[in-house]
Simulated assay, not measured.
Amino acid sequence: MNEIKVIEDYLFRNMKGEDVTLFEAQLLLNSELAEKVQLQKKVYHLIHQCGRNALKEEIQAIHDKLFIEPRYSTFRKRVLKLFFNQKD
């Protein structure tokens, strides 16, 4: 089986109990495999973080558009009134 797929199955908990036990035994005996698992884990973390950062930037752009551009002032006032009970 493809090593990357096996590592992925392990990291995403797609293995059955006995397969997990066998794979973890292999990790103890094979430092190269253990290093590959750690590297793949870091890659997934970085991909996840990159996606979060892109989403934050997109949300900030929407916020800036709706709450800064003058053409959306009516919308901005309605939202502020809703959340902060402000007068018009």
Rank of each mutant, 00 (worst) to 15 (best):
M1T: 02
N2M: 08
E3A: 12
E3C: 01
E3D: 06
I4Q: 11
I4M: 06
I4L: 11
I4K: 14
K5D: 08
K5C: 05
V6T: 15
I7M: 09
I7L: 01
E8V: 00
E8F: 07
D9K: 09
D9C: 07
Y10I: 06
Y10M: 04
L11D: 11
L11Y: 11
F12N: 10
R13K: 14
R13C: 04
R13Y: 10
N14G: 06
M15N: 05
K16V: 12
K16Q: 14
G17Y: 04
G17A: 14
G17S: 13
E18C: 00
D19T: 00
V20Y: 03
V20P: 00
V20I: 15
L22G: 06
F23K: 00
E24K: 08
E24C: 04
Q26D: 15
Q26F: 11
L27H: 05
L28S: 13
L28R: 12
L28G: 13
L29H: 08
N30Y: 07
S31P: 03
E32F: 11
E32I: 09
L33P: 05
L33W: 02
L33E: 04
A34E: 15
A34Y: 07
A34G: 12
E35G: 06
V37K: 05
V37L: 10
V37I: 07
V37N: 12
Q38T: 09
Q38D: 14
Q38Y: 06
Q38I: 11
Q40D: 11
Q40P: 01
K41W: 04
K41H: 12
K42F: 05
V43I: 12
Y44F: 13
Y44D: 06
H45G: 09
H45K: 14
L46C: 01
L46S: 09
H48D: 13
H48G: 07
H48E: 13
Q49R: 12
Q49D: 12
Q49W: 10
C50Y: 13
C50F: 12
G51I: 00
G51T: 01
G51A: 05
R52L: 08
R52T: 11
N53L: 14
N53A: 09
L55S: 09
K56P: 00
E57V: 03
E58C: 01
I59V: 12
I59P: 01
A61E: 02
H63D: 02
D64H: 01
D64N: 04
K65F: 03
K65R: 06
K65Y: 06
L66Q: 02
L66H: 02
E69F: 04
P70C: 01
R71V: 03
Y72H: 07
Y72A: 01
Y72N: 03
F75L: 09
R76A: 10
R76P: 00
R76W: 03
K77S: 08
K77P: 00
R78T: 09
V79E: 07
V79K: 02
K81V: 04
L82F: 15
F83M: 11
F83R: 09
F83Q: 07
F83K: 09
F84P: 05
F84N: 05
Q86K: 13
Q86M: 14
Q86W: 11
K87S: 14
D88G: 06
D88I: 02
